[in-house]
C-alpha cells in the first residue's frame, strides 16, 4: 500500500513539473544563399544612468528584458514600469538576466534624470540599465523592436503607444514579448523568461 502511495506521489510531482519549452525566434525570416537569417537587434550604442556606454557587446553574455518609456509619460509607462519591477523582483538574483529600458525622450531624459529615476525605483544600475542617446537612433531602435512585435509597421501603432515588453536572447534575437499593461500577460511572460534562462544556463549535474 505504501509503495502505491509513493508511486502516486512521484507521478503527481512529475505531472506538475513545468514542461521544458523552447521559445521561437520572433520576427521576419530571410533566406540568403540557402541560409536562414532571423531578425536580430541592430547595432546600437547608448549611455546608461551611470554614464557607461551600453551596446550589443555589453549584453552578449546575458538575456535581457527590454522596453521603451519616458519619465514624463502620463499614461502607459507607470503601468508598464510596475510590471518591469515585478520582473526585476522575481529575477533580481539571476545573474544571466538584465533589464534594459530605453527612453524615447532623450531631450528631457538625460543621464542625470535617468539616474534619479532609477534611484527612486531603488534598483541596481548593474542589473537594470536605463538608456539614453541620440533621439533618432532611439526611435529607429524602438521602431525596429515594435515592427517585430506588431508584424505590420504601417497599420499598427509604433513605439508611441506601446506598452510592449520584449525578451532578447544572447544572439540578439527577440524570443518573446508581452503587453506590459496587462499583469496576466506579464505572468505568462515571467514563465517565458524562465524558459529562456533554462535554455541558456549550463546544465548542472
Amino acid at each position: 500500500m505504501k509503495n502505491i502511495i509513493v508511486i502516486v506521489i512521484v507521478l503527481s510531482l512529475l505531472s506538475c513539473k513545468e514542461e521544458k519549452k523552447t521559445l521561437p525566434i520572433i520576427g521576419q525570416v530571410e533566406i540568403v544563399d540557402g541560409d536562414t537569417i532571423y531578425h536580430s537587434i541592430p547595432d546600437f550604442k547608448f549611455v546608461n544612468q551611470d554614464s557607461i556606454y551600453i551596446d550589443n557587446a555589453s549584453l552578449s553574455e546575458y538575456i535581457y528584458v527590454s522596453d521603451f518609456f519616458f519619465t514624463s509619460c502620463p499614461t502607459i509607462c507607470p503601468k508598464v514600469k510596475k510590471q518591469m519591477l515585478r520582473i526585476y523582483d522575481k529575477f533580481e538574483n539571476e545573474d544571466k538576466l538584465k533589464l534594459v529600458s530605453h527612453t524615447i525622450d532623450p531631450v528631457r531624459d538625460n543621464v542625470e534624470t535617468l539616474k534619479l529615476y532609477s534611484s527612486n525605483l531603488d534598483v541596481s544600475s548593474e542589473k537594470w540599465f536605463f538608456l539614453t542617446g541620440d533621439k533618432n537612433k532611439l526611435l529607429d531602435m524602438a521602431d525596429d523592436y515594435f515592427v517585430v512585435a506588431y508584424e505590420d509597421d504601417e497599420v499598427a501603432g509604433g513605439f508611441d503607444h506601446s506598452g510592449k515588453i520584449l525578451l532578447v536572447d544572447q544572439n540578439r534575437h527577440i524570443r518573446a514579448f508581452c503587453e506590459g499593461t496587462d499583469p496576466d500577460d506579464v505572468t505568462e511572460f515571467l514563465k517565458d523568461i524562465q524558459h529562456l534562462l533554462d535554455e541558456v544556463k549550463p546544465v548542472v549535474n
Binding site: T75, N136, L139, A142, D143, F146, G158, F159, D160, H161
Partner: peptide, 10 residues
C-alpha cells in the same frame, strides 16, 4: 494623437 507619434518619425 499619441499613436501618431511614430508616424512623425517614419
Amino acid at each position: 494623437v499619441m499613436p501618431k507619434m511614430s508616424m512623425l518619425h517614419r
